[in-house]
């Protein structure tokens, strides 16, 4: 995939233009997760593990149905389970499929200093290219969803690829295929938004979910994974989904003005040294020697 540059629109740490960007103008792909119809069977977790070829790892019971506290470098898809007490005293067991959101404006890609370690394809998928990854972990500081994870053995970063390998050859992602309730949908972003809005309207009008809505945060330019939530005003209840995610301002300044200021400072330094040399000449070493030194 990394060589398919005609399908790439953004490259991390890359000087100059992206070769071939704009040649492919396909639809943006999107996963729709309807949290209201998830039954927590974790078939998507199993499908993700098996398609990507990761093996069993040890887990520990931690007073929850959740498999592990966070996604891991070899566990990209996690159902986050939360018992949530509503204001009217009723209880909800909220279950949200946590994975890479495939932001239109990816913070990981902005933060990444390694040329070509993170790319964004024309269909919207944000993908890590491990052969170019230097394992610095800056992508973690750029991600508002805490998704990239470090493999200490290979010193590379990993995350959900939105099954770029499957999608390229016309297959839906593995998690979508495995879902038994149809709470997971996959298709063009525009179509998924229509389905999601219809479902949210149904929840508002025919169920007791007055604040049902669609989570497609504008702060990161919209996402390639969108949620239907029972209560879109309280996304934090779904295992810490940020209300208004942004690429951190530190990353923005660091990769924007600070980078240019830094370059200017460096140029200024070289210029200063050159001028100093021209004005004062080279530094001469005196003939005197320290005590005890041999001539």
């Amino acid at each position: 995939m990394s060589q398919a540059t005609l399908q790439i629109v953004k490259i991390s740490g890359h000087a100059g233009t992206v070769p071939g960007a704009g040649v492919e103008r396909g639809e943006q792909v999107c996963k729709l997760v309807d949290t209201t119809t998830c039954i927590g069977c974790k078939a998507c977790e199993v499908a993700c593990l098996e398609w990507n070829g990761y093996q069993f790892s040890d887990t520990t019971f931690d007073n929850t149905y959740q498999t592990m506290p966070q996604t891991a470098w070899n566990y990209w898809n996690l159902i986050k389970c939360n018992e949530h007490e509503r204001e009217d005293g009723t209880l909800q067991l909220l279950m949200r499929k946590d994975q890479c959101m495939h932001c239109a404006d990816p913070g990981c890609l902005a933060a990444c200093p390694a040329d070509g370690a993170i790319v964004q394809y024309a269909n919207g998928i944000v993908d890590f290219q491990q052969q170019n990854c230097i394992g610095c972990g800056y992508c973690v500081s750029g991600c508002p969803f805490d998704i990239p994870k470090f493999n200490p053995a290979t010193k590379k970063m990993f995350k959900c690829t939105l099954c770029a390998d499957r999608v390229t050859v016309g297959l839906e992602p593995a998690c979508i295929k495995a879902c038994p309730t149809g709470c997971l949908h996959f298709g063009a972003k525009e179509d998924m938004k229509v389905i999601a809005e219809d479902r949210a309207q149904q929840l508002r009008e025919h169920f007791d979910f007055k604040d049902a809505g669609v989570y497609d945060p504008a702060g990161v330019g919209g996402t390639g994974v969108i949620y239907v939530l029972h209560d879109v005003k309280n996304p934090e209840a779904y295992g810490g989904l940020p209300r208004d995610p942004h690429v951190p301002w530190v990353v923005r300044i660091w990769k924007g003005p600070a980078k240019w200021l830094g370059n200017l400072a460096m140029l200024g330094g070289i210029l200063g040294v050159t001028l100093h040399y021209l004005r004062f000449g080279p530094k001469e070493v005196g003939p005197e020697r320290h005590k005890g030194e041999q001539p």
Partner: peptide, 23 residues
């Protein structure tokens, strides 16, 4: 549990990973 098929899946590594211990 939805993760399990009767008793059989205690011999399947992935199902065991999903629900590691009795509770």
């Amino acid at each position: 549990l939805t993760e399990h098929y009767h008793y059989w899946t205690k011999n399947n590594p992935v199902n065991v990973e999903l629900i590691p211990e009795a509770f």
